[in-house]
């Protein structure tokens, strides 16, 4: 896992700015709803995986409960709008605050848990929230779900067309990436990686474990909730199986892992690989075989390339570089002879 934030910023400005400009222009060229929709889905999962990576990758707490925060974001924005007419722009913020508080609490109580115990605790937490979403019918209407009224208008983040959601999704991804970059360049980023690598050594150097882990968990949860609110206004219908279900948690983690956990851009890259692949497989093979291949892909990736796609790219790049260097030295030695 490369950790050169200064260098990373330069690269992200060099590559990122033209790329961002191109991405902003996409809806003017792509008007097909299917492709634009696929693009929006990629953006959302990229944002989710990037948000997961703050606690899962930088801090090393492999969470299988992030669907809970996604659900909190989706339900908070939806319910505030349906019950009180509060615009989902504010609902999104409220959901982020609520999920952030929840994330802080979970971060604090799972502090001492390591390895599989942490994974199981987050899994159980996710399931508790899912059970609540299914059974607290007075609030969530359970499995029947909640429908957002069509034509709520731009003021309420409910657009008739698809293109506005492209921009919102782009903004969401930029936000999560921006926060990740900012964290990695701040003391918190260094502390989190130090804690992940060796907690005892980090503590002996003066790193405050509680503060750092709680902050990482809260930030990750809040950003995940933002994506949840975005999802609710985009699809305009939410139910527990599309928001709080365990599979959602798995998918978030899976995308981050495929892309490369602990890196800034890996998780977003993972969404670019996994989401279209998933759609293609589902369309051509059907749900069962597609998920079969998903499972297989997860196994192969974690066994063969635990640093993900970005790890593979880095390896390829350094191979090319050393190859070029070798060629250069042979040429030079030939020149001497």
């Amino acid at each position: 896992m490369g950790n050169e934030p200064a260098n990373e910023l330069r690269v992200s400005l060099l590559v990122g700015l033209p790329l961002a400009a191109a991405l902003v222009a996409v809806p003017t060229f792509v008007s097909d709803v299917f492709w634009l929709g696929l693009g929006i889905t990629v953006l959302m999962w990229a944002a989710l995986a990037t948000a997961w990576n703050i606690s899962g990758g930088l801090a090393g707490g492999l969470s299988l409960g992030h669907a809970a925060y996604f659900g909190v974001g989706a339900y908070t924005a939806t319910l505030l709008f349906l019950r009180f007419g509060i615009s989902p722009y504010f609902g999104l913020l409220a959901g982020a605050v609520l999920a952030g508080a929840l994330g802080a609490a979970i971060g604090a109580i799972t502090l001492r848990l390591r390895g599989p115990f942490f994974v199981l605790a987050t899994l159980a937490f996710g399931i508790v929230v899912h059970i609540a979403a299914v059974n607290w019918r007075d609030l969530t209407r359970g499995a029947a779900g909640l429908l957002l009224p069509f034509g709520g208008g731009a003021r309420n983040m409910l657009f008739a067309g698809v293109a506005p959601y492209w921009y919102l999704g782009l903004g969401l991804l930029a936000l999560t990436l921006g926060v990740t970059l900012a964290i990695r360049r701040s003391p918190l980023g260094y502390y989190l990686v130090a804690l992940r690598e060796d907690e005892d050594a980090a503590r002996a150097l003066g790193v405050k474990v509680v503060r750092c882990k709680v902050a990482a968990s809260a930030i990750s949860a809040a950003l995940t909730a933002c994506a949840g609110a975005f999802y609710a206004t985009y699809i305009q219908y939410i139910d527990p199986s599309s928001t709080t279900q365990f599979e959602i948690s798995v998918q978030i983690a899976l995308i981050a892992i495929v892309g490369g956990i602990g890196t800034t851009f890996g998780p977003a890259l993972g969404a670019l690989v996994v989401v279209p692949l998933g759609e293609i497989l589902r369309a051509s093979l059907g749900g069962g075989p597609a998920l079969m291949l998903y499972g297989l892909m997860l196994i192969v990736i974690v066994l063969a390339a635990p640093n993900g796609v970005i790890g593979l790219l880095q390896r390829l790049l350094s191979m090319m570089r050393s190859g070029a260097r070798r060629r250069a030295t042979t040429r030079r030695s030939r020149g001497h002879a």
Partner: peptide
Amino acid sequence: KPFGGLSVRDNVLVGALT
């Protein structure tokens, strides 16, 4: 107990940050 995945400089940097 080195932070194995970090560069030597960043290992020392963590100490200075605190």
